[in-house]
């Protein structure tokens, strides 16, 4: 099932590239955070694509658990970054 693995991992690489480019190009915090999240989604996709073994074979559960952890950490990090950004805005206003 190499073709599906390859297709989805290349899509993951693509997502990572798109996200990285936008992270570097943007200046504002919110678009940068979105771009970083797209980057992260790309990494998750590479992981899960490699864990996939075909329709009839069981997928590898260890990367699944790692990515599940990753999704929760990503949302926490996003919340933290948003709070930091909000505080910065408040300081700029003063």
């Amino acid at each position: 099932m190499i073709s599906e693995q390859l297709l989805y991992s290349l899509a993951g690489v693509g997502l990572f590239g798109i996200g990285l480019r936008a992270t570097l190009l943007h200046h504002m915090l919110l678009p940068r955070l979105l771009a970083l999240n797209v980057c992260g989604a790309g990494v998750f996709l590479i992981f899960i694509a490699i864990a996939y073994g075909g329709l009839k074979i069981m997928a590898d559960p260890v990367p699944h658990a790692l990515v599940l952890t990753g999704i929760v950490v990503a949302v926490s990090a996003t919340a933290m970054a948003l709070a930091l950004g909000r505080r910065l805005e408040a300081l700029d206003d003063e």
Binding site: L30, A41, A49, Y52, A59, I71, A74, V75, R86
Partner: peptide, 28 residues
Amino acid sequence: LKAPDLALAEAVIGAGISGALLLSAIRD
């Protein structure tokens, strides 16, 4: 890709909670 646990988590956390978080942050 046969990762139903992740599909559930992504739908609730990745799309749902992050979405609500980001939408409410736009005001800031």
